[in-house]
Write a protein that binds this DNA or RNA. Structure first.
Lengths: 142, 142
DNA sequence: CCTTGCCTTGACGCCTACGTCAAGGCTTAC
DNA sequence: GTAAGCCTTGACGTAGGCGTCAAGGCAAGG
């Protein structure tokens, strides 16, 4: 099949396939007129890449899976290098999730604090002599 | 104080401050020779921005906080627009954390499956006639 | 013959938050 | 006077994964 069909069958674009090729992840034979040709094996390769991309893997991280399939293994993750990538990704995800949860906590606390502060105005907020600050996008006022 | 000192006191760089200024987030008076001058208020503003940035807020998302401080409020989150940003960010974080946890689950399952598959070789993996696939970066072999 | 639709390579655009270099001016210390 | 260290604006570079023209070739249908 040619590039358009492969792209369609994998739910992506020809631009993406050429990009993968430029990165050395997807190779193609050529017909007499220079058109790229692919087979079912290439589709399998491409689907492996796309699946990992959907998981948030960098393109470079998909390389071991691709090479594993190219080496003739039944699955992209049949090789130790691929398993290593899985493990690194799990660590990354755990770390990232942990950080995000910490941030979520802090932001939640900030919101709670700010909301309660709105109810009990600070002593210096209405200190005599200063003009009343006005919120820029509050609407209604004025 | 001048830009270098402000940057140092906020733990950032002069480039960053000029960038913020170009984005309209940080303004500066000028001395006779054209140097930027800042006061303690600017430092407070800058610290507000930096704190939010550390939380992963986009620069644009810090704008309501900055304008709130500029309007004379005691805190950057003393304005409803800032609270809105907090809430949106909480939603985003919850959604993101949820997605990441789902991905983490799937990757974990993939890893488990691939590891167990390694122990019990597939029936077709050693089908007679096909050459033994070789892992590219396994070392040792050969 | 002409249009349509697929293909080719090349190359700039995007987006964020700056890093980094270039060329030059001001001030201060020595 | 000159070197050091601060400042100025301008402008290109980075990273990732493509999107989006541009200009042109090839094949098939009418």
């Amino acid at each position: 099949m040619r590039i358009g069909e492969l792209a369609a069958r994998a739910g992506t674009t020809t631009r993406t396939l050429r990009y993968y090729e430029s990165r050395g992840l997807l190779s193609a034979r050529r017909t007499g007129n220079g058109y790229r040709t692919y087979d079912e094996n290439d589709l399998k390769l491409l689907r492996q890449i796309r699946t990992l991309q959907d998981f948030g893997f960098d393109l470079e991280e998909t390389r071991p899976f691709v090479e594993c399939l190219r080496a003739g293994h039944p699955e992209g993750d049949s090789c130790p290098a691929s398993l290593q990538v899985y493990r690194r990704k799990l660590d990354e995800l755990d770390a990232l999730i942990g950080e995000l949860r910490a941030v979520r906590e802090k932001v939640g606390q900030q919101l709670a604090r700010a909301e309660s502060a709105r109810d009990e105005p600070a002593a210096d907020a209405v200190a005599p002599g200063g003009p009343e600050p006005v919120c820029e996008l509050g609407g209604e006022l004025r």
